[in-house]
Amino acid sequence: MAGRMVVGSTALAELVRPASGSDPTGAHQLLPVLPELAGLLPNRGLRRGSTVAVGLGHPARSGSTSLMLALLAEASRAGSWCAVVGVPTLGAAAAADLGIELGRLALVPHPGPEWATVVAALIDGVDVVVAAVPGTVSASVVGRLAARARQRGSVLVPYGRWAGADVTLQVIRGAWEGLGQGRGRLRRREVTISARGRGAAARPKEIRVWLPGDGSSRTGRVSSAGVVPPSGGPAVAAPPGVGRTGSRRAALTVVGTSD
């Protein structure tokens, strides 16, 4: 009896392998991303060991922070640990709305001159490390951090100018909806995200998504902070031509794809 139990548990232990294990077999190598963003990434997910940069948008404030958070969201929800270095202005409520588990999100707002050391230390243990790039970073540091991420199986997400990323995502345009002259409120924003990179991601791609999407269509999740529109108007109807599926999560919705 005892022998059988031991055998049974060994068999189970082989079936269920820790997600963080360093074995290089297929599925464990990918961290999930929101399905709307999957099309931009070569393997439809964040490949462990890769470097996925988020570039600053063209008008500086047109959605790059939301894009960075959206990139983390699905992996964080699936149980990965994330860290954000050097972004003291991060809005935690927005992160939680996008689906990031705040209990597994560490913030290092002021890494100071130890930036490279801190990022390297985080790569050792955290699945996704977002690092706001301070000014200029020397090519040797870039190479060292990328190599470290590759070796440890973490995903490095430089946030800012970064040479040598596998994929660089960038917000090209962002347009808000819902704000009138003295009425309405910000409801959702259509952003155009471009992806370019090397290897499998060499062909530039572009998608349009709602980021953030219209909160009214979010049925399953209500953030703990809650939302009460002071104007209390009805939800904006989806504009014609928007391919919104009836998905549960509409924090992010694909508007169209143009390769």
């Binding site: 404030r61 202005t89 991060l90 809005g91 927005a94 939680a96 709305d97 959702r188 953030p212 939302v227």
Partner: peptide, 10 residues
């Protein structure tokens, strides 16, 4: 309270 969406930069 502010209506959703929450600002990403505070």
């Amino acid at each position: 309270r502010l209506p959703s969406p929450a600002p990403a930069v505070v």
